[in-house]
Each structure stands twice: as structure tokens, then as C-alpha cells.
Design a protein around this nucleic acid. Structure first.
Length: 795
RNA sequence: GCACAUGUGGCGAAAUUGGUAGACGCGGCAGACUCAAAAUCUGCAGAAGAGUGAUCUUCGUAUGGGUUCAAGUCCCUUCAUGUGCACCA
């Protein structure tokens, strides 16, 4: 019937020869920038999930081009990071070579799908020409005081032997290998992301991210408004600063809790009489990871600090101070005032250790703080409104100069060091005399050395630290002996700005030219996995906002629309994995059914944002549809125009709009309805066939071009304008008018579209079945909706 | 625990945004073609009931209630599933 393999090869060759998808940087046309997340070129190859995302935006890209836009739709490789390194260690090759091999495979797999990427702009984050500019931008962070080195208790993966960001170790396990993360103190490079918390929050208003994506960002930033209040330590001049969102409950604060590592314990250690016990607890808390601390949430532990008490500044009473790991040093001030009557955790703790509980809000019972009348609270007594009480308390605190209003964010600074070989070297040099000195721009990039041994060391230093030739260098400042920084960047680094580089990927003078930035502006539509909507997106926005603030990019927000696709699950409804043996290889599908069938199926599979199980039968159905489109060419007549004008115009309208709103499944079903209509006819016109394949082209680009050529229907579709519709022509001459009695359907009749209201009503009353239901009853009113129904209300 | 999302045939899903629930596809059943099978084509199909029949009736969008001439759609209740955050003070 037709050889899809030949057809697909032929048209892929054609697009390549004609540079059909090359985006132009100096174009008169309006731009449209579409972006899909670039993949890790892992050894296991392309996944059907990749194909879903790529096909979706490819469909949009192809439509946009036919609508006259200058479309930028690029692709590249995010090839730094642990997976590539581990693969290389395992297979005893240099990561560079492993990456080159994997990219080759990946690229070939993607090309087989017929995705309209502009391959002229391809790059990998591991290309020295690219990471030169990643390093250059890091130095910008450094120059502006946004990068600093600090001793940090970091999340440490004992298996990968590297530090991890909080984000990388969510849930207390290493994101890469699943090993339990432990705490380890280390000097790390940090980026001051927390300075941008408010801007990152506010910036969301200038994006068109979906509500779900915005919410994910908001949660990560974790803004909370409250107050910092000083509690004096009895018989000393020392104070304990707490953070609270409920200063209004301070009269109920009957004890304090501080984090086990709180510095006041060191300051006042001479006063503490149970130092041994405290040290023991500190050790105990240290061995527990953050995850374990939360795991054991129900079971409160702690030790009372013997030797000093604090004073509740409002009741004037002496209150106990405890250490417990339910208070985190990393959030707020590392100390809280505990109000056991109105806080779950404080209540539990007080119960366990027999600490007094004083309610300050009448009628409130745990676990929720309800609104109620304030009691036992002096000047707050009688107030019933929480906001009012908080406001009044804040004023009082300020007046007494014991505290202030304070906003806190959960977002912390970004730990930017990794003790790995396969990452961008941090371009700094340490000189005994001059301290940290940036590598001069002319010496960038700082290249990774070509060495045989790049396995992580036991002591947690980067593998680079063992390569003396590389480490030892001269100070760019004083010319004396100096050493290079041996930590590398996290692999989030390269992906935090790659969308900018695509605008001008071969520029060796600048990270992107100003002209390219001005023309392409921002990414109009960015699609990727659900798992990246929180962190990667936040890092990319942070990076871009920084570049904006120092005047390097024109937009504060780099992305307009962000969508996230659901996963494609195995035929068994489970996540695809080698161990379950339910992995579908997209290129096997291409081999057997063709790229067009695969693409069409992945777009037809269901709601784009939802997960969907693989179904081979459903795929076959899509192939069957393509066969029918192919066969439609065999019954062309000599007439012109559309045989069924309203249906064609309706279909154009539906497909045009559905692609834009990602409702690919209904766009395809509209095309199926159209072919069903053609199949019922003896013959169809060339215009009929041309419009069908044109609308189908973004989904199934190869076979539609072939049909177009075979029957001489016109210029190649990819070089033609998208079909247009006329709203007035979408209306049928007749429709089925529905008759209802009391809202229930009692009859139908086919009527002329321009029938009057009066005629509609009289037809309804004449209907035999309707008469059965209104007989002997009083008609209260008649509701007539032109084009739809007549509803007779009777009693 | 908190926040958000979702709940429609045997399955994937549609539903002009308050107006004929189940489009389209898969699977199924029956028939045609065939020695036969596959492929293809034609027809049927939410559930229950009445009628020889065209048809008609009742029920039906997780649950219970409400608003409305009219509810899958709006409001409240409960339940289930999914995702995110989580001892964040």
C-alpha cells in the first residue's frame, strides 16, 4: 500500500536539504520561541515520554510556522552530572567519550521521529564553548557578591560522595542513587538565592504558568510573615531571639525550644549544669538526617537546659529552655517560644515533659487554632479577631523595643559546589596572599583535564584535587603560587541559562549577542516534565533575574507559558522500568508502525497533563486512520471547493484552536470525523483532501507531504499557509431541535437553522409525544433557546 | 496533617463552558469477503424494562443535599484517588 519507511526518510531528507526549520535571527517576521527540556543523553536511550513532549511542541511549532511566524524550536544536551559520570566509570571510558556516543544515539532516535528542531543550534552543556560562558556567568555572580564560600552542614551522599542541595536530597535520600543522606560539615560555594525570594515570588505574576506550576514555585519559596521577639535570659545580659507567626499568643508561651546546634549553648556553656546530657543529645540529633527527624515527627524528644531560664517578656515569668530537634537551626532564628495550648507540636512536647499549658484563646482546642476571644492576655483580652490581636501585639513589641515584624522564607541559598569530576570547574583560584581570585576572562574556559582517573575520593574531595598538574597554578593577581578550586558546579548550572544560548549558540565573543536577546526576548512556551516544575524552573528564573538585574538580559522573567506533560506508563499502568520489563522503545514503534503513527498516537492518548498507560491497540487505531487518509486519495473527482463546507470550516476552526490549547486529542478526533464523512462519499475534491492533510500535517508530517505530492495538490505543506476558516460558513442549514417538558427530552425534529422562535414553539406543541406530557396540565412558561431547544414548563 | 487537582460505559476519553451525557478511538458482538485465518468493509452497542416493529418509559456522570425551567458543569457535605509541601514555629 505505502512504504512509510521510505516516505519518512524522504521527507526528513527534504527538510534537511531545504533547511525548512532553520530559525533566522534577523527576520521581519514575528518570532515565536518554543522550548522543550533538553535531555540527559543517558545510555538507555530515548523514552516514549520524551517523544510525547517533543511531538506536542513540534505540532505547535509546525502550525506556527505555517501561520507565518519565525519559530525557534531548538534542541541540545544536558550532559554534565552524575549519571553521565557514573556511566563512564562503570564502562571505563572518559565521560566525554561516553557523552559523545550517547548523544549520537539520542540524536538519531529523535531524528527518526521527524521533530522539526533547528539542529543548527545544537550544543551540549559539556562543550567547552558552552561551559566557558557558564563559568563566565558564575564569575558575574561572584563579582556582584552573589557567590560566597561558607562552612555548611550539608546533605552528603555517602555513595556518590558528594554534597547535595536541599532540593537534591528531598525526602532525605539522594535523588540520584536513593542512598540515605547524612550531614557533613564542608566548605561550599553558595549562591545567594534567598535574596531573590521575594522577587521570585512576585515575578510569578508576570508569567502565564499554570496554576499548579505557580503553586509549586510558591511552596518552594515558602513565604511566612510573623515577628522576631527577644526573650531575656535570667541573670545574664544575653537574649534569645525567636521567630513566630503568632505573636498574639505570647501570653501562653510557657517554655522555649531551641535547635540542638543553637550557638547560645556554646555562649552560656559555663552556666549549664547538664552539659554532658546536652552534648549527648546533640550527637544524637546530628546522626539523624533531616528526613529521619521528620519521620519521627510523632515522637518528641528533647533535653531541658539546666542552669538558666528565660523570661517571658509579657508575663514576666521565668520559663524553661529546652533543646529539641523539632526546631530547625536553618529556619527562622533556630529558637521558638512554645505555646502548648495553641500549637500541636508544642502541645505534644509539653504533654510528654509535663510543662504547664495556659490557653489564651477561649474555646480553642487543638489541633487547630480557631478564632476566639482572647483571655489571660492583659491588653489583648476581649479581642475576638486574630488579625487585630496580631496587629496590636506587633505595635506593643515595637514600642517596647523587644522585637520587630519579620518575613521569613523557606528558600535557602543554593549550594553550588559538587565534589565531582564531570561538571563545570568553578573558575576561581586560591592564593595564600590574595585569597580567592577569579580566573581572568581571557583564560576561560577552565577546561577539565584529560585524565584516566576521575573516581570520587574517599575523603570527599573532588577527584580534581588529586590532579596536581591541574590544581597547581599561578595567581592571576600577584603571580605567586596558587591552587585552583577543585569543586565543580551542579548540573543544574548549565540548564539554568541554556534557553538564552539557543538564541545565538555559536557566539564566541559573548554569551548571547544583544541583538539576539532583543529579537527573541523570552521563551514563549516551555514544556517539560512535572518533576522539573519546581526546582529547575526556580533555578532558571533566579539565574535570569540576576542577569536582568546586572543588565545582561532584557526580561526579568525568562519564560511566559510553562506546561508539564504527564508520564507515559507501561501497558500495565506502572511506571516504565527495565526491572519491570514494561519499557516501550519509541524507535521499535517507529520501525513497525512508522513515526507518523507513533506521533499521532501519543497526541491522541488523552489529556496532555495527565499520565497515560501505553496501549498498542490504540496505536494500531491511529495507524488505521492514517491508512484511511492515504486511501482517500484514490477517489478524487474533478470538482472544486469543499463537498461539505460547514464540516470543513468547523474542522479547521477546531483543529486550529485545539492545537493552541494543547487539546491534541480532540483535534485529532475532529480529523477522524472528517475522514468518516469523506468515506461516506462516492468521491471527494482535491480541496477536500488538501485541507484534511494540511490540518493533519503538524501531527503526521511525513505521510501528509507524500499524499500532497502524489496527487499534485499544491506546494509542500511545510511551505504553505495554514488553512483559514470563515465563522459564517461553520453553520449548518439544519439542526436537530429538542423538545423538552419540564427539562426532560420528549421529542426531536430536524428544522431549518433560521426558523423563528414562534415556529419553534408551535412545533414543540404539535409534537405527539410532547402532547402526551402536557395534556391536562397548565403551561407555566416556555423557554426557547434558538439553535438548541424548547422547554415547556407545566404543572 | 496542610494545599491543589481529579472522579463520566468494559477501556482511553468528549461535552459549544448551565441547554440532547457518552463525540472520536480501543476492545466487544453480528454480518460481508475468504477453503480458512489475518487484513479490510458494513451494522449494533450506558443499564433495566415494554412492544412483532419504527419506537417508548425509567434509571444513570464517586456520595448525600441545594440553587435553576434545565446541573457532568454552579454551591455545600462525605468518600476515594493522584500530586506537591511537610515538626517551617
Amino acid at each position: 500500500m505505502y512504504n512509510f519507511k521510505e516516505i519518512e526518510k524522504k521527507w526528513q531528507q527534504y527538510w534537511n536539504d531545504h533547511q525548512t526549520f532553520a530559525a533566522k535571527n534577523n527576520s521581519e517576521k514575528e518570532k515565536y520561541y518554543l522550548l522543550v527540556e533538553f535531555p540527559y543523553p543517558s545510555g538507555s536511550g530515548l523514552h516514549v515520554g520524551h517523544a510525547r513532549s517533543y511531538t506536542a511542541l513540534d505540532t505547535v511549532a509546525r502550525q506556527k510556522r505555517m501561520e507565518g511566524y519565525n519559530v525557534l524550536f531548538p534542541m541540545g544536551w544536558d550532559a554534565f552530572g552524575a549519571p553521565a559520570e557514573q556511566y563512564a566509570i562503570k564502562n571505563h571510558i572518559h565521560p566525554k567519550d561516553a557523552v559523545r556516543e550517547n548523544i549520537k544515539t539520542f540524536k538519531q532516535q529523535i531524528e527518526e521521529l521527524g521533530i522539526s528542531f533547528d539542529w543548527n543550534r545544537e550544543f551540549s552543556t559539556t562543550d567547552p564553548e558552552y561551559y566557558k560562558w557558564t563559568q563566565w556567568q558564575f564569575l558575574k555572580f561572584y563579582e556582584h557578591g552573589m557567590a560566597y564560600k561558607a562552612k555548611k552542614n550539608i546533605n552528603w551522599c555517602p555513595k556518590c560522595k558528594t554534597g547535595l542541595s536541599n532540593e537534591d536530597s528531598a525526602g532525605g535520600v539522594c535523588e540520584r542513587c536513593g542512598t540515605k543522606v547524612v550531614q557533613k560539615e564542608k566548605e561550599q560555594w553558595m549562591l545567594r538565592m534567598s535574596d531573590y525570594a521575594e522577587d521570585l515570588l512576585q515575578g510569578l505574576n508576570n508569567t502565564n504558568f499554570s496554576k499548579r506550576v505557580k503553586l509549586g514555585q510558591i511552596n518552594w519559596i515558602g513565604k511566612s510573615e510573623g515577628a522576631e521577639i527577644d526573650f531575656e535570659i535570667e541573670n545574664t545580659d544575653k537574649k534569645l531571639k525567636v521567630y513566630t507567626t503568632r505573636p498574639d499568643t505570647i501570653f501562653g508561651a510557657t517554655f522555649m525550644v531551641i535547635a540542638p546546634e543553637h550557638p547560645i549553648l556554646e555562649t552560656l556553656k559555663d552556666k549549664i549544669t547538664n552539659l554532658d546530657e546536652i552534648k549527648k543529645y546533640q550527637e544524637y540529633a546530628k546522626t539523624k538526617t533531616e528526613f529521619e527527624r521528620t519521620e519521627l515527627a510523632k515522637d518528641k524528644t528533647g533535653v531541658k537546659v539546666e542552669g538558666f531560664n528565660a523570661i517571658n517578656p509579657f508575663t514576666g515569668k521565668s520559663i524553661q529552655v529546652w533543646i529539641s530537634d523539632y526546631v530547625m537551626m536553618t529556619y527562622g532564628t533556630g529558637a521558638i517560644m512554645a505555646v502548648p495550648a495553641h500549637d500541636d507540636r508544642d502541645y505534644e512536647f509539653a504533654q510528654k515533659f509535663n510543662i504547664p499549658i495556659i490557653p489564651v484563646i477561649e474555646g480553642d482546642s487543638l489541633p487547630y487554632i480557631k478564632e476566639g476571644k482572647y483571655i489571660n492576655s492583659e491588653f489583648l483580652n476581649g479581642i475576638t479577631n486574630k488579625e487585630e490581636a496580631i496587629q496590636k501585639m506587633l505595635e506593643e513589641i515595637t514600642k517596647r523595643k523587644i522585637g520587630n515584624k519579620k518575613t521569613n522564607y523557606r528558600l535557602q541559598d543554593w549550594i553550588f559546589s559538587r565534589q565531582r569530576f564531570w561538571g563545570e570547574p568553578i573558575p576561581l583560584i586560591y592564593c595564600e596572599k590574595c585569597g580567592w581570585v577569579p580566573v581572568p576572562e581571557k583564560d576561560l574556559p577552565v577546561l577539565l583535564p584529560d585524565v584516566a582517573n576521575y573516581e570520587p575520593t574517599e575523603d570527599g574531595e573532588s577527584p580534581l584535587a588529586g590532579i596536581e598538574d591541574w590544581v597547581n597554578t599561578t595567581c592571576p593577581h600577584c603571580g605567586g603560587k596558587a591552587k585552583r578550586e577543585t569543586d565543580t558546579m551542579p548540573n543544574w548550572a548549565g540548564s539554568s541559562w541554556y534557553f538564552l544560548r539557543y538564541m545565538d549558540p555559536h557566539n564566541d565573543q559573548d554569551f548571547v549577542s544583544k541583538e539576539a536577546l532583543d529579537y527573541w526576548g523570552k521563551v514563549d512556551w516551555y514544556d517539560g516534565g512535572m518533576e522539573h516544575t519546581a526546582r529547575h524552573l526556580l533555578y532558571a528564573r533566579f539565574w535570569n533575574q540576576f542577569l536582568y538585574n546586572i543588565g545582561l538580559v532584557p526580561n526579568k522573567e525568562p519564560i511566559d507559558i510553562r506546561t508539564s506533560h504527564g508520564m507515559i506508563l507501561g501497558p500495565d499502568g506502572e511506571k516504565m522500568s527495565k526491572s519491570k520489563g514494561n519499557v516501550i522503545n519509541p524507535n521499535d514503534v517507529v520501525e513497525e508502525y512508522g513515526a507518523d503513527a507513533l506521533r499521532l498516537y501519543e497526541m491522541f492518548i488523552g489529556d496532555y497533563e495527565k499520565d497515560a498507560a501505553w496501549s498498542i491497540n490504540s496505536l494500531k487505531g491511529c495507524k488505521r486512520f492514517l491508512d484511511r487518509v492515504w486511501n482517500a486519495g484514490k477517489k478524487l473527482n474533478d470538482r472544486q471547493g469543499y463537498s461539505n463546507e460547514p464540516l470543513v470550516h468547523k474542522t479547521i476552526k477546531k483543529v486550529t484552536n485545539d492545537i493552541k490549547s494543547m487539546k491534541f486529542n480532540t483535534a485529532i478526533s475532529a480529523l477522524m470525523i472528517l475522514i468518516n464523512d469523506y468515506d461516506d462519499k462516492e468521491s471527494i475534491t482535491k480541496d477536500d483532501l488538501r485541507v484534511l492533510i494540511h490540518l493533519l500535517n503538524p501531527f503526521a508530517p511525513h505521510i501528509t507531504e507524500e499524499i500532497n505530492e502524489k496527487y499534485n495538490l499544491g506546494n509542500p505543506l511545510c511551505e504553505s499557509m495554514w488553512p483559514t476558516y470563515d465563522d459564517t460558513k461553520t453553520i449548518d442549514n439544519t439542526y436537530e431541535l429538542v423538545f423538552q417538558v419540564n427539562g426532560k427530552v420528549r421529542g426531536k425534529e430536524t428544522v431549518n437553522t433560521n426558523i423563528s422562535k414562534e415556529e419553534m414553539e408551535s412545533l414543540a406543541q404539535q409534537n405527539v409525544n410532547v402532547q402526551k406530557f402536557i395534556e391536562g396540565k397548565t403551561i407555566i412558561k416556555v423557554i426557547t433557546i434558538p439553535g438548541k431547544l424548547v422547554n415547556i414548563v407545566v404543572k
